[in-house]
Nucleic acid binder design. Structure first.
Length: 537
DNA sequence: TAATGCACTTAGGACCAGCGGC
DNA sequence: GCCGCTGGTCCTAAGTGCATTA
């Protein structure tokens, strides 16, 4: 991700946390209303918080729990190829059962899923099997599928006592493997089981759906624990990939999964001290952000007027994150995951700009797939900027490129001062109008009549009008400031193809008089006459 | 400085137990 | 007793972002 992206991403994290201010504040009130029952337990969260990145002093656990070995199918259950029963090798049969178990799922109807499964399945076959089984459509997993359905039914039909035995066995496993000792506290582990083999189920249109998730062996697993603790014992006949004692991390065991090459971790349960502390810190950051958010909002608004395109883009990105709580949108490797985006990775096709939509002006329509391929669809009215400013910026960019500079006009400071006074006056009027509107609304609420309704309408219009006038003056000020030492005339008259300007005016409904004076219109009469809005340079 | 690695959080969906209605 | 609904838990994919490396 580029520097701009990283800055945005950091800002985003904080602004997303702002979303939680209301709930955090209410929780805070709730907490203060309650008696603190257990000061000891509070201390527990605060004790030993290390500033040097150490996450624990002692860590002891039993290692992860492995899924059961594959149990071959009974002789009576067969896989069929081209209508004939075929006895598969254990490795190929196991992968076939993964597919058979999923037959009811929509996944198996998807071409990508089928292709990935078949490719990976063939890798597990013997030479002889590979020679025989060449087409998925000739494969019949029906009997295997039926076998597993029957097994599920059998499980359902177990007696109460039999179910109790299974439950007790599960509890025993949790007791044995589901806890660790961290700094002397017995803590629940979040996921103490190694993920079982199966077929990868990505979300959305994932290019790797159906690929074989291989069985994880002790030899794949790195154990993390205290040096002086009882080191977890690997299953008989196996050994760990590595045993390390890194207290800068919180995980107990890890391995690399084969489908995406990412690292999987065994970590603590959210109820643990470690996770609780981090959660607490997260909300503390959000609290700090609360005092900065006004400044951030002022900053991104100021950035919209920046001469640098990067800053303007950043300003818009942060504005949308703030307004819509979009995710940051990191870069992703193409073809490796589903095509999903966030704020910074949005593409042109995800956005439609409407001058008017559903009675509102300047509406941005978002339509994209976000995290987990969940569709985001939203129509958002945004703050309007004067189009003339955009034109002048383009003009200015050329002038800067060509170094068309000028001395600041002698009257510049004075005229800016006047403009500032005008803005202040307008702001005052706007404030007054808002007060009057508030008053009118209150009166209408107390005693609702036609007259009071009309008064509210009138005041609303007045506020809107003043807001627009104020915005216009502010834009004028920005434009003048940016133009202070730039001579636009030369580039406008000599370097900018007037047809581009004319087409732009036509496309966006900007009167040509706004950009060309009488002399310029005469000079460019040919362009005004011949150019349509779709003109391409 | 960009790319990559690593560690962590977030979040959707599967699964399961409990419950009420029929 | 069966069935469907609901809510909680578990599982793991899919994000984010800091740290490290090239």
């Amino acid at each position: 991700m580029n520097k701009y992206g990283i800055w945005v991403v950091q800002s985003i994290t904080y602004s997303l946390k702002v979303r939680n201010f209301a709930s955090i504040a209410s929780l805070g009130r709730l907490a203060s209303d309650c008696q603190v029952k257990d000061i000891e337990s509070k201390r527990r969260w605060e004790e030993g918080q290390s500033l040097d990145g150490q996450k624990w002093k002692t860590l002891e656990h039993k290692g992860p729990l492995f899924p059961p070995e594959y149990e071959p199918l009974p002789k009576t259950v067969s896989f069929y190829y081209g209508g004939k029963p075929v006895r598969l090798s254990v490795a190929a049969e196991e992968v076939a059962t993964f597919y058979a178990k999923m037959l009811d799922h929509e996944y198996t109807s998807k071409e990508v899923f089928q292709r990935n499964f078949f490719t990976d399945w063939r890798k597990e076959m013997t030479e002889e099997e590979r020679g025989l089984i060449q087409t998925l459509s000739k494969c019949d997993f029906g009997e295997i599928h039926g076998y597993f359905l029957a097994k599920a039914e059998e499980k359902k039909a177990l007696t109460k006592e039999e179910k109790q035995v299974l439950k007790e066995e599960a509890s025993r496993q949790v007791e044995e493997y589901g806890y660790c000792y961290l700094d002397g506290h017995r803590e629940r582990i979040g996921n103490f089981r190694v993920e079982p083999p199966g077929l990868f189920r990505g979300r959305g249109e994932h290019p790797k759906m159906g690929k074989l998730k291989k069985r994880v062996l002790p030899e794949d697993i790195t154990i993390n624990c205290s040096k002086d603790s009882n080191i977890p014992v690997p299953p008989r006949g196996h050994h760990w990939k590595k045993v390390q004692h890194d207290n800068a991390v919180t995980w107990l065991a890890s391995w690399v999964e084969n489908v995406q090459g990412s690292i999987k971790y065994i970590m603590l349960n959210p109820s643990s001290k470690l996770k609780g502390e981090r959660d607490w810190q997260k909300f503390e950051i959000a609290r700090k952000l609360k005092s900065k958010v006004d400044m951030i909002r002022r900053q991104y608004r100021a950035d919209w007027k920046s001469r640098e395109m990067k800053k303007r883009q950043r300003g818009v990105a942060v504005y949308f994150i703030d307004k819509l709580a979009l995710r940051a949108g990191n870069e992703k490797e193409e073809g490796e995951t589903a095509d999903t985006v966030g704020c910074c990775s949005l593409r042109v096709e995800h956005i439609t700009l409407h001058e008017k939509l559903d009675g509102q002006e300047c509406v941005v329509e978002f339509d994209f797939l976000g995290k987990d391929s969940i569709r985001y669809y939203n129509k958002v009215p945004v703050e309007k900027r004067e189009k003339i400013l955009s034109y002048n910026r383009a003009n200015r960019a050329v002038a800067i490129l060509c170094n068309h500079q000028r001395a600041a006009p002698k009257t510049f400071e004075k005229s800016m001062q006047l403009l500032q006074e005008k803005i202040a006056l307008k702001q005052e009027k706007l404030d007054e109008a808002k007060e009057e509107l508030k008053e009118a609304r209150n009166q209408h609420k107390d005693c609702s009549t036609d007259k009071s309704r009309k008064l509210v309408d009138k005041q609303e219009k007045s506020v809107k009008k003043l807001e627009e006038q104020l915005k216009k003056l502010q834009l004028q000020m920005t434009d003048r400031e940016e133009n202070k030492v730039i001579a636009l005339g030369t580039s406008k008259l000599n370097y900018l193809d007037p047809r581009i300007s004319v087409a732009w005016c036509k496309k966006f409904g900007v009167p040509i008089e706004k950009i060309y004076n009488k002399t310029q219109r005469d000079k460019f009469a040919w362009a005004i006459d011949m150019t349509e809005e779709d003109y391409q340079f």
